[in-house]
């Protein structure tokens, strides 16, 4: 059985080059260079928007968060010190925190409350299109309690480590593990027919 233990990352040279380029752009931002802001927006907006969409699962809210994150970058450019990762870690953290603020403030709750707790009666997987399946998984993710969904999104979709998730949410490593475990167990229960159909050997397709 193949186990997912190997992992690759960006080559160090590429990361250094990116950090240098971001450093030059940062200096231009601090001077109020609108052309530099346009470059930064074009380059990093998909990342910021992606984080916000996955955490909030709402297009309009996510776009507002993305806008605010990018503008915060520009407003704070003069006092910002970038790490080796350039703009990306800073933008990811700001976008995540903005999303958390929205969730905590209840601005996102109305969207979550629109999702029924019970998903429609399960159907056979082979009768579902990918879009149907995607919508069911999305509904199950939305139905998770906010903290569980945040932890799972940051760890699973955003690739943050356990300690990074804990630092972002202000909780211990043990609490992160607990939130993640409860989130996955809830998803396994809600989507049990779907994931069981994805087990190897049932139809030979996996």
């Amino acid at each position: 059985m193949r186990t997912a233990l190997a992992r690759t990352g960006d080559p160090p040279q590429a990361a250094d080059a990116q950090a240098g380029e971001d450093g030059r752009l940062l200096a231009r931002l601090a001077a109020g260079d609108g052309a530099a802001f346009r470059v930064v927006v074009d380059r990093h907006l998909p990342l910021v928007l992606g984080v916000a969409r996955r955490v909030l699962r709402d297009e309009a809210e996510a776009e507002d968060v993305a806008q605010e994150a990018m503008l915060r970058l520009w407003r704070n450019a003069s006092g910002l010190e970038l790490g080796p990762g350039g703009f990306k870690p800073w933008l990811r953290r700001v976008a995540t925190n903005l999303c958390i603020d929205r969730v905590r403030a209840g601005r996102h709750l109305s969207v979550v409350e629109d999702v029924p707790e019970q998903i429609d009666p399960p159907r056979q997987l082979d009768n579902l299109s990918d879009r149907d399946l995607s919508q069911r998984v999305d509904a199950a993710l939305r139905a998770l309690p906010d903290r569980q969904r945040l932890a799972l999104t940051l760890f699973h979709f955003e690739g943050l480590s356990q300690s990074e998730v804990g630092a972002t949410l202000g909780i211990s490593d043990e609490a992160v593990e607990s939130l993640l475990a409860r989130a996955r167990r809830a998803l396994k229960a809600t989507l049990k027919d779907e994931w069981r159909d994805l087990l190897p050997g049932d139809d030979g397709s996996v």
Binding site: R53, E59, D130, S134, V137, D138, L187, L191, W195, L199
Partner: peptide, 20 residues
């Protein structure tokens, strides 16, 4: 147990929101 976890991973991957 590992096979079940992998199946859930594949399922969650389908829950990723489509790119705008």
């Amino acid at each position: 147990l590992y096979a079940e976890a992998e199946a859930l991973e594949r399922l969650l991957a389908k829950g990723s929101m489509p790119e705008p």
